[in-house]
């Protein structure tokens, strides 16, 4: 066991050695920083793309829904046309609401169709850019 004074002397006089390879460390640091910047830029671009897609999906969904709603409302009621001898309450309800159900499926299909088209367009643009860069 050592005394307080000796320990104080040891602790206060000791200075850990300074690293000497600062240039190497800084070069590695800047490499990693560049990689992070690239990842951040990519992430930002992806967020912007997703935002754009969401706006498009909302707009097309609204327009398609509106158009289909007008068409559905303008059609004669299928209950009158089809429910000749149906007594099932479920079937009658189903027939009553079939224009709206169809409208929902059509609007969803159109929206997803447009999103898929946009995705493919982006992929194609990426591919063309890659081919141009390679050539």
């Amino acid at each position: 066991m050592i005394q307080d004074k000796e320990l104080d002397a040891l602790l206060t006089t000791f200075q850990p050695v300074e690293p000497t390879d600062s240039a190497e460390f800084m070069s590695e640091f800047e490499k990693r920083l560049n990689a992070i910047d690239i990842a951040l830029a990519y992430h930002k671009a992806e967020v912007q793309k997703a935002h754009k897609k969401a706006v498009w999906a909302f707009a097309t969904g609204s327009v398609a829904g509106l158009i289909l709603a007008i068409i559905a409302l303008a059609l004669p009621s299928p209950v009158e046309l089809l429910a000749f001898s149906i007594h099932s309450r479920f079937m009658l309800t189903f027939l009553e609401y079939i224009p709206y159900i169809m409208m929902f499926f059509c609007a969803t299909s159109i929206t997803f169709g447009i999103i898929e088209y946009m995705n493919r367009k982006e992929d194609m643009e990426g591919l063309i850019l890659e081919l141009k860069q390679n050539s």
Binding site: E18, P19, S22, M26, F29, L33
Partner: peptide, 18 residues
């Protein structure tokens, strides 16, 4: 930030090394 790191990296590394 890079300048800050350049200035402080030695102390930081010395601390972590110990």
């Amino acid at each position: 930030f890079i300048n800050m790191v350049r200035k402080e990296q030695k102390g930081l590394r010395r601390f972590l090394l110990t």
